[in-house]
Lab assay of single mutants.
Amino acid sequence: KLPPGWEKRMFANGTVYYFNHITNASQFERPSG
Rank of each mutant, 00 (worst) to 15 (best):
M10N: 09
A25S: 11
F28E: 08
A25Y: 08
H21Y: 15
H21R: 11
M10G: 05
W6K: 00
V16W: 10
N24A: 09
P31M: 00
Q27R: 06
W6R: 00
G33E: 14
R30S: 09
S32Y: 13
N24S: 10
R9N: 04
G33A: 13
V16P: 08
K1I: 14
F11E: 14
T15P: 02
N13M: 02
S32W: 12
F19I: 07
W6N: 00
F28V: 12
E7V: 10
S32K: 11
Q27F: 05
H21M: 12
P4N: 10
K1V: 14
E7H: 07
F28T: 11
N24Q: 13
F28G: 06
W6T: 00
F11D: 15
W6G: 00
P3K: 03
M10R: 09
E29Y: 07
N20S: 06
N20E: 02
S32G: 13
M10K: 10
R9G: 05
P31F: 01
A25D: 10
A12N: 10
Y18Q: 00
R30G: 04
F19K: 03
P3Q: 05
T23A: 05
E29F: 08
I22R: 06
V16A: 07
V16L: 07
N20T: 01
N13S: 08
P31S: 00
P31H: 01
G5L: 03
I22D: 09
G5S: 05
Q27I: 08
S32H: 11
E29M: 09
A12R: 08
A12C: 08
N24G: 15
E7Q: 07
Q27P: 01
I22L: 12
N13T: 06
A25M: 14
I22E: 11
W6S: 00
F11Q: 15
G14V: 01
K1P: 15
G5Q: 07
Y17M: 06
P4M: 10
F11C: 06
R30I: 13
G14F: 03
P3T: 04
G14N: 05
S32P: 11
P31V: 01
S26Q: 13
P3Y: 03
G5M: 05
P31D: 02
A12M: 09
R9L: 11
Y18W: 08
W6A: 00
H21P: 10
P31W: 01
P4V: 09
H21D: 05
Q27L: 06
K8R: 11
Q27D: 03
P4Q: 10
R30P: 14
V16Q: 06
S26F: 14
Q27H: 05
G33P: 12
K8A: 12
V16E: 10
W6E: 01
M10F: 14
Q27Y: 05
P3G: 06
G33F: 15
G5E: 09
G33W: 15
A12W: 08
V16M: 06
H21L: 14
K1L: 14
N13P: 03
P31Y: 01
I22S: 07
K1Y: 12
F11R: 09
K8D: 05
S26A: 12
T15K: 12
N24F: 10
E29W: 08
H21W: 13
N20G: 01
S32T: 14
F19Y: 14
K8S: 08
S32D: 14
G5V: 04
G5R: 03
S32F: 11
N13K: 02
T15H: 08
Y17R: 01
T15Y: 08
F28D: 07
T15D: 11
E29K: 06
M10S: 11
W6M: 00
K1R: 12
R9H: 09
A25T: 14
M10H: 12
W6Q: 00
S26Y: 13
G5P: 11
T23E: 05
L2M: 08
G5N: 10
Q27A: 07
R30T: 08
N13G: 07
G33T: 13
R9D: 03
V16R: 03
T15G: 09
W6I: 00
F19E: 02
G5W: 06
Y18F: 08
Y18T: 00
T23W: 05
E29P: 06
R30H: 14
Y18I: 00
P31N: 01
Y17A: 03
S26E: 10
L2F: 05
T23P: 00
E7K: 04
F28H: 08
F19P: 01
G14L: 04
I22Q: 09
K8Q: 15
E7A: 05
G14D: 03
Q27S: 09
F28A: 09
R30A: 11
G33L: 13
F11H: 14
F19A: 02
W6Y: 01
N24P: 01
H21A: 12
P31T: 00
F11T: 15
Y17N: 01
Y17S: 02
N20K: 01
E7M: 04
L2E: 06
R9K: 12
I22H: 10
V16K: 04
S32R: 10
I22A: 08
I22Y: 12
P31Q: 00
A12T: 10
P4T: 09
I22V: 11
Q27G: 02
F19V: 07
F11P: 05
A25H: 13
G14A: 02
Y17W: 08
G33D: 13
P3S: 04
P3R: 03
N20L: 02
R30F: 15
A25Q: 15
Y17D: 04
P3H: 04
Y18V: 00
W6F: 01
L2Q: 02
F19L: 05
L2A: 03
N20P: 00
V16I: 14
P4Y: 14
A12P: 15
G14H: 03
P4S: 10
R9E: 03
P3W: 04
T15A: 10
S26D: 04
E29I: 07
F28L: 13
N13W: 05
R30M: 12
I22K: 07
N24H: 12
T15M: 12
E29S: 07
A25E: 15
M10I: 13
S26H: 11
T15L: 11
R30K: 11
R30D: 11
A12L: 10
R9V: 10
V16T: 10
N20Y: 04
A12D: 12
F28K: 09
K8N: 04
N13L: 02
F11L: 15
K8T: 10
E7F: 04
H21Q: 10
T23D: 06
G14M: 04
E29V: 08
A25F: 09
T15I: 13
Y17Q: 04
W6L: 00
F19W: 09
V16N: 03
G33M: 14
A12E: 13
G5A: 06
S26N: 07
E7S: 07
W6P: 00
P3F: 02
A25L: 13
Y18E: 00
H21T: 15
Y18N: 00
S26I: 15
A25V: 15
